[in-house]
Design a protein around this nucleic acid. Structure first.
Lengths: 132, 132
DNA sequence: CTAACTGTTATATTATCAATATAACAGTTA
DNA sequence: TAACTGTTATATTGATAATATAACAGTTAG
């Protein structure tokens, strides 16, 4: 029930964004499974020592992107139907985010194979289920 | 001398960041070569219709990251010694930026091969030199 | 020498966003 | 009834992005 949340308060990346990423990573790792309940905005906020609205902001955005469902007077749940699959729009978005990373890497002499190796390692790491 | 600058003023991405990316992309494409002069902060700002300080902010950051050199009373130049090659720190940074992209892609059913294909296409596109 | 150009610095203002703090509302459930 | 859900409203603080002027200190072309 309790997710492993690791926030860096010194980072310039907003807290609500970091929170989104952690939850998405949890889903990717299948530590969070479809239908599974997430902590309430208040309890999660209290747990990690931040404001309720910051958690709410992350939840609202995750909802809008199809990762979670929010039942008005019940609670928050990982989308039971699974996450909406990638469409053309997502692939374009992905490409636009990847573009500056590739450009800088080319400048710095990182060739495609090295770049792909980093990607492959991440795919491997993030596919590990909860190893008991 | 004049770079193809394409800014999206509606984007939530800061202008100075977009500007940095465009210049880095120009260097990757070898449209901007080591030693080549860049427009002055004032002329570039006037060209694309933004403030001089916004251009300066982009230049300062590009300088700090080793992409350009700034001669106090001369001008701005693409680093004649080439761009500092990737070290361990850069690879870690790259990994941390790639991580959320991979996580979301896994959730959305984009497998490693599809992800790599996008990367490969970007490497191909960004390596095209100025085709005359 | 003057005029026009370089980057740099300083100061100020406006707008937006991130994060916090309280507080209340409307349903659910134990 | 009491404790819990998400939601909404309002306000404040701090940081950042972008703009606007203005001036300074060197360089260089006419």
């Amino acid at each position: 029930m309790n997710v492993f949340i690791n926030l860096d308060f010194e980072s310039k990346e907003p807290i609500y964004t970091q929170l989104m990423h952690q939850i998405i990573e949890g889903i990717a790792r299948q530590e969070l499974k479809p239908g599974e309940a997430l902590p309430s905005v208040r309890s999660l906020a209290a747990d990690i020592g931040i404001n309720l609205h910051t958690v709410n902001k992350a939840y609202q955005q995750l909802k809008q992107e199809g990762f979670i469902l929010i039942h008005r007077q019940k609670g928050v749940v990982v989308n039971p139907d699974g996450i909406p699959q990638a469409d053309e729009a997502y692939m374009e978005l992905l490409k636009s985010k990847l573009r500056p990373l590739v450009a800088e890497s080319i400048c710095r002499g990182v060739n495609a194979d090295e770049f792909i190796e980093v990607t492959t390692n991440l795919y491997r790491d993030l596919n590990k289920k909860e190893e008991i």
